[in-house]
Design a protein around this nucleic acid. Structure first.
Length: 382
DNA sequence: AACTCGGGGTG
DNA sequence: CACCCAGAGTT
């Protein structure tokens, strides 16, 4: 599984491939803000700070999503010194909406570490970068090859696809021995000069031509070299990621309305105790007072008896883990309140609305809250 | 090796 | 929906 060039390739083949790809890049590359200097000029040497910020933002995030955040971020914090001096809340505010906030914290911490070491200019030493938080092999190679033309390979989603197809690699280059294979391939194809442009060209080709589905092989400068194209396997290489297994989780949710507050309780269906309870502000609805009998019954059942409720089934995705959740929803109005004091249930955890807002939008808790707090939702009484 | 982080874009 | 996206760090 280790990488070696196809036997039929000569040194000339590799040289020709590099030239074709670089020529294609010169003609077709997109005009992206991190390919320009801070003053807007293009074509000059790239600012390592801007490249670094862009690479961190682009991690698992599409180019179109990043561009406006990048512009705003580097306008507010134009160099590593400004970033190091900034308050973390300001950095996170500038990051808000991009997700993966740990990236921002790592970027900030790295800038502060450099400032602490009195590094005023970003260095071209791989060992220094490798020691920074949030900097892995990809970002190290991407920044140093672009900003200093250091001969360091990069492997990410695009170049991985291009290289796997070009050399007709069977198996998954993302896992196991495939990882080593693709890094060696990226090292092998890299020229001695214009390393940054070449790395960019691999990615640009993957983004614009060698796309995951329906690659435009007719427009590809490497079509004459491509093993996947020769075999007609462009769409099969690399293999699709296996979807994560679906774990079925049955949860019971109960909502009780008391005036303008909702009391929500949630637990796994097979658990005897409530695991999460929280209050949510909620506008009172006409008719709330008519169901106090139901509320009393719910109160009895909250002590641990099974509920026989309306049922909602929803599938949610949380990260890469997917749950099929059966929500057993009990809704009732409670007049007077007081029956559901926090101390009433062992192991119950009170969560403020602010805590709840911190849950990921796709989390079961948020889904539950949204479903139950919807003012237009018909109450389910029993 | 599998999992987590978190949305957003696209067909 | 399914699948993907300029990954890194932790378990």
């Amino acid at each position: 599984m280790s990488f070696s060039l196809p036997p039929s390739w000569s040194g000339r083949t590799l040289t020709g491939l590099r030239t074709k790809l670089l020529n294609w890049f010169d003609k077709h590359q997109r005009d992206l803000p991190w390919r320009r200097a801070a003053d807007g000029t293009a074509g000059g040497p790239r600012d390592p700070y801007r490249v670094w910020v862009s690479e961190v933002m682009l991690q698992q995030t599409t180019v179109t999503a990043v561009v406006p955040y990048f512009e705003r971020f580097v306008a507010a914090l134009p160099d590593v010194r400004a970033l190091a001096a900034a308050d973390e809340q300001r950095v996170l505010k500038l990051w808000e909406g991009l997700g993966y906030y740990r990236r921002a914290r790592h970027l900030h911490a790295a800038a502060k570490a450099l400032a602490e070491a009195h590094v005023d200019q970003l260095p071209d030493d791989p060992a220094v970068w490798d020691a920074l938080p949030g900097v892995g092999r990809y970002i190290l190679g991407a920044v140093l090859s672009q900003a200093f033309d250091r001969k360091l390979p990069i492997v990410e989603a695009n170049s991985l696809r291009v290289l796997a197809r070009l050399f007709g690699h069977r198996g998954d280059p993302r896992v196991g021995a495939g990882k080593a294979w693709v890094w060696t391939a990226a090292e092998t194809v890299l020229p001695n000069a214009r390393c940054g442009d070449f790395n960019q060209a691999l990615m640009e080709l993957g983004a614009l031509v060698c796309t995951p589905t329906a690659p435009d092989c007719g427009a590809c400068p490497l079509q004459g070299h491509c093993e996947a194209k020769r075999l007609g396997l462009q769409e099969q290489i690399p293999p699709k990621k296996k979807p994560p297994a679906i774990t079925e989780v049955s949860e019971v949710g109960v909502v009780i309305r008391s005036g303008d507050t909702l009391l929500l309780c949630q637990r796994p269906a097979d658990a005897g105790r409530w695991q999460n309870m929280w209050e949510v502000p909620h506008a009172p609805r006409a008719g709330d007072e008519d169901v106090s009998d139901a509320a009393v019954r719910v109160a009895k059942e909250l002590t641990g008896l099974d509920v026989e409720p309306g049922v909602e089934v929803m599938t949610v995705k949380h990260g890469v883990t997917r749950y099929a959740i059966t929500l057993v929803c009990v809704e009732a109005a409670l007049v007077g309140g007081g029956a559901f004091a926090p101390g009433s249930y062992a192991d119950a955890k009170w969560v403020t609305p602010a805590d709840l807002a911190a849950y990921p939008v796709s989390s079961p808790q948020r889904k539950l809250m949204t479903a139950l707090a919807d003012p237009n939702r018909q109450p389910r009484l029993f």
